[in-house]
Design a binder for these strands. Structure first.
Length: 268
DNA sequence: CTGGGGAGGGGGCCC
DNA sequence: GGGGCCCCCTCCCCA
């Protein structure tokens, strides 16, 4: 089930790109990835070490709740950078979060005037402004990419997939989608094909048994970061997804949906 | 039936 | 513009 906000409904015929340019050649993963087999593909010591996790905010189906998780899930010192991007400082990014439909214009404006922590000259540098949404960028290329992906594209273009009926607002998004049809990344061990190299790498871990993501609270390890994230919820008394009616919390959105569909929240 | 793990797919952001 | 990595999400299966 596509859930991307970039996917446009198929209402009428639209511009189609030159697909001969979009088709990607089948790529066999570089042999070096197999040279170490069955050694771990990505045996980075900092990843292999016990990892912690960021504070998890409780979500309902409609929005944030103010209650954080217990302190035992707070980040530990020495948190590896590979997992540290989970929760960036809210006001630090002025050009991202374009996809957050719940953002109010006011908060968006507040974000724009916040200097980037890593760039003391951010304010004076952000001199390229989108004429459509007023977002500002420090570089012309940043503005150009924004307009291509969001404003200009939404106002005048759509790109249709030749393999299915999905439409995208940018050629780049369409190219990425088409990879899900062409599946250029092929596992040399079992022949299974994937759309992206990192998906293939994750799959290869199922062959090697490598589990670089460890739970800091128990001895379990996981091959996939997302699965570790879901597992960490099981250690929490207050889980990430909360029923807005009975306040019961769940570790996964799917469990919350099941709960709601089972009748707890039939009234609303 | 519920909760959790495994596997995979999606677009966004950064470099 | 593309690759790598990110988080979020879903589906399936099993205990």
């Amino acid at each position: 089930m596509p859930r991307s906000f970039l996917v446009k409904k198929h209402f009428n015929a639209s511009k189609k790109p030159n697909y001969s340019e979009l088709d990607t050649h089948t790529v066999i993963l570089s042999p070096y990835l197999y040279e170490s087999y069955p050694m771990p593909i990505i045996p980075q010591p900092e990843i292999l070490s016990s990892v912690a996790y960021n504070p998890i905010t409780v979500w309902t189906t409609t929005g944030l709740l103010p209650s954080p998780l217990p302190s035992d899930l707070s980040p530990l010192s020495g948190y590896p950078s590979s997992l540290g991007r989970v929760s960036p400082p809210p006001p630090s990014d002025t050009s991202s979060k374009d996809h957050s439909g719940s953002e109010s214009p006011i908060s968006d404006e507040e974000e724009r005037i916040q200097p980037k922590l890593s760039d003391p000259h951010a304010i004076e540098a952000e001199k390229f402004q989108c004429s459509l949404c007023s977002k500002t960028y420090s570089t012309f290329s940043g503005l150009a990419k924004h307009k291509q992906l969001h404003c200009d594209a939404q106002s005048r273009k759509s790109f249709s997939c030749k393999y299915c009926d999905k439409e995208y607002v940018s050629l780049g998004a369409l190219k990425m989608h088409i990879r899900t049809h062409t599946l250029p990344c092929v596992c040399k061990i079992c022949g299974k094909a994937f759309s992206r190299p990192w998906l293939l790498q994750g799959h290869i871990r199922t062959h090697t048994g490598e589990k670089p993501f460890s739970c800091p609270h128990c001895n379990r390890a996981f091959a996939d970061r997302s699965n570790l994230r879901a597992h960490l919820q099981t250690h929490s008394d207050v889980k990430k997804y909360q029923c807005k009616n009975c306040s019961k919390t769940f570790s996964r959105m799917s469990l919350l949906h099941k709960h709601e569909e089972s009748g707890c929240c039939v009234a609303h």
